[in-house]
């Protein structure tokens, strides 16, 4: 079953590439704006042999990873503190609901003002966008603590920190993992956006250069690379999730006893 699924997926991909080749060749779209797949593939090959491409890729991944790491740690710590300290959730709820919907891209002028085209600009935007994804999930996750589990922990003398570590954190972990997966995707979007708009070094900036210098196949090749990155990030976070949550119902499935 899994094998045939993979085969179907590969076939779908091949059809898509063939369409990408055929549509411009048949003159259905302008070849200057939408080059056929083989020219994009050629451009991709040239990119892969260019060291400037690899350093741009490294820059993008650095911004992504650092921004995500900052957002995840800040989101987890803030979420746990807000949930554990009495009344803090009520006090912060309206502020969170106000700040969360602000699109990160609206902060681009602020980022430029503060940090120019440095990495820190990217980190600000990536961090801001990814932080809320994690924080919201942690806040939901902590609410999910089973009262019986909590009472069990209390009755066996587990103190505040021990209960956070052994009850609250494992309960929230599935939510945290979802938050991290969402945050990882958002972080990539924002990293590329920041580079594209601000001109911070990275794949986004390279796409902008390709566009302005009319290197259309190269531009598409770079877009394909960002897509592949997104795919790999998603596969990676899912793998981490499955490992960390092997005990959870969503992963273990129903066990027959």
């Amino acid at each position: 079953m899994r094998g045939s699924d993979a085969a179907l997926g590969a076939a779908g991909c091949a059809v898509f590439v063939l369409l990408g080749e055929a549509v411009p060749r048949l003159g259905l779209v302008d070849e200057d704006h939408f080059p056929p797949a083989c020219r994009i593939a050629g451009a991709l090959g040239r990119e892969l042999s260019d060291t400037a491409f690899w350093s741009a890729l490294g820059d993008t991944l650095t911004g992504w990873a650092l921004g995500l790491a900052i957002a995840v740690s800040a989101g987890v710590v803030a979420g746990v503190v807000i949930s554990v300290v009495p009344y803090l959730r009520e006090v912060t709820a309206s502020t969170i609901e106000f700040l969360r919907p602000i699109p990160s891209v609206a902060l681009i002028p602020l980022a430029v003002l503060l940090y120019g085209t440095e990495l820190r600009s990217v980190l600000l935007l990536v961090g801001y966008a990814a932080f809320w994804q994690v924080l919201i999930q942690v806040l939901y996750g902590v609410r999910d603590v089973d009262p019986v589990a909590e009472e069990t922990a209390r009755s066996y003398g587990l103190g505040g920190w021990a209960r956070v570590r052994h009850v609250l954190w494992p309960t929230a972990l599935p939510y945290v993992m979802t938050g991290v997966r969402l945050a990882a995707a958002v972080a990539l979007i924002l990293a590329v956006t920041a580079e594209l708009v601000i001109g911070a070094p990275g794949l986004g900036a390279r796409i902008a250069v390709a566009q302005t210098s009319q290197a259309v196949p190269e531009m598409y090749a770079l877009i394909v690379v960002t897509g592949v990155l997104g795919l790999l990030i998603n596969v990676g976070t899912r793998a981490v999730e499955r490992r960390a949550l092997a005990w959870h119902q969503s992963v273990r499935g129903e066990v027959a006893v």
Partner: peptide, 13 residues
């Protein structure tokens, strides 16, 4: 303490 709800009282993780 031994609770009625063993499934929720034992930690699945």
């Amino acid at each position: 303490f031994v609770f009625q709800e063993y499934g929720r009282s034992l930690f699945p993780w």
